[in-house]
């Protein structure tokens, strides 16, 4: 499954003339990140993780990706730090770490 990802190569429109007509643009363009209000970040301990994927199922923002063979991956560009994954993890494999201020 392909997830939309932040297009780091995206160049913001310089002026109004570079904006699209209406709200239509080639699909899959996430032009901004959306995680600035996160005060804690979930970190997966690969040693404890059993790959049960309950966090992947329950993440309300769909930012835990199950695409790599080496394990689950959290997209910190869009994770809001709600902590549901850490709360629900049966292996206690996810800890919430304070974000630096």
């Amino acid at each position: 499954m392909n997830y939309p990802v932040w297009q780091r190569s995206f160049k913001p429109p310089k002026d109004l003339a570079e904006y699209p007509v209406g709200t239509a643009f080639p699909a899959g363009h996430l032009v901004e990140t959306n995680a600035s209000w996160r005060s804690q970040r979930p970190v997966i301990d690969a040693e404890k993780c059993s790959s049960c994927r309950i966090c992947w199922l329950l993440c309300p923002d769909g930012v835990i990706h199950n695409t790599k063979p080496e394990g689950l991956e959290i997209d910190y560009d869009y994770c809001k730090g709600c902590g549901i994954c850490a709360k629900e993890c049966r292996q206690k494999a996810i800890r919430m770490e304070n974000e630096g201020i």
Partner: peptide, 17 residues
């Protein structure tokens, strides 16, 4: 020419629309 229609535009881009 597939497009994402009726998309979101956050504070940085919304006013331009």
């Amino acid at each position: 020419h597939p497009m994402s229609l009726a998309f979101t535009a956050g504070p940085a881009y919304n006013q331009a629309f």
